[in-house]
């Protein structure tokens, strides 16, 4: 069940052989070493494996690797373009939104997607909560994460 796929991973074109039975999360972690992706629940509840496919936020554990063929995949590893943290990452640090860190890469991708979609718009804390509802964090109680997204949106505007 091996298939060839060609896709853009963090801006670089990649052609590789993948097993059609594998989830994108497995292929990105095991074959490409992109270990920012965490497998938490494996059933699309926790969001720790969140990545962007064609700029759409998905759980890579519930997404077959073959579906990435011809698409553009973004993981946390590709977001940092210089040796500085991204604005979103910086806002998480500033607001104390990182504790154990397991959920953080997934959250950063969710926040990145949210901020890109809502650039220049007035958003409420409720909007932020609703669009981060697919990511679980057992440490922070979410308040600091929402704060970080707010900070990041203010810095952005």
């Amino acid at each position: 069940m091996i298939r060839e796929i060609t896709f853009l991973i963090n801006g670089k074109e990649k052609t590789m052989m993948v097993d059609a039975r594998k989830a994108l999360a497995e292929v990105l972690r095991e074959q490409l070493g992109l270990i920012s992706i965490k497998q938490g629940c494996g059933v699309g509840e926790c969001g720790a494996c969140s990545v962007l496919v064609d700029d759409v936020l998905i759980d890579s554990c519930l997404y077959l690797a073959v579906w990435a063929d011809g698409k553009k995949v973004r993981t946390l590893e590709g977001e940092q373009k210089t040796d500085k943290l991204t604005e979103v990452q910086e806002a998480y640090v500033e607001n104390g939104a990182v504790q154990c860190g397991f959920c953080t890469p997934g959250f950063i991708m969710a926040s990145t997607s949210f901020i890109e979609k809502n650039k220049g718009k007035n958003v409420t804390r409720h909007d932020i909560r609703k669009e981060h509802a697919g990511n679980l964090c057992r440490c922070t109680g979410y308040k600091k994460i929402i704060d970080a997204v707010e900070t990041s949106m203010i810095n952005d505007n």
Partner: peptide, 9 residues
């Protein structure tokens, strides 16, 4: 339905 990641797919 679900959360954003689920609604997206």
């Amino acid at each position: 339905v679900g959360g954003p990641q689920v609604r997206n797919v």
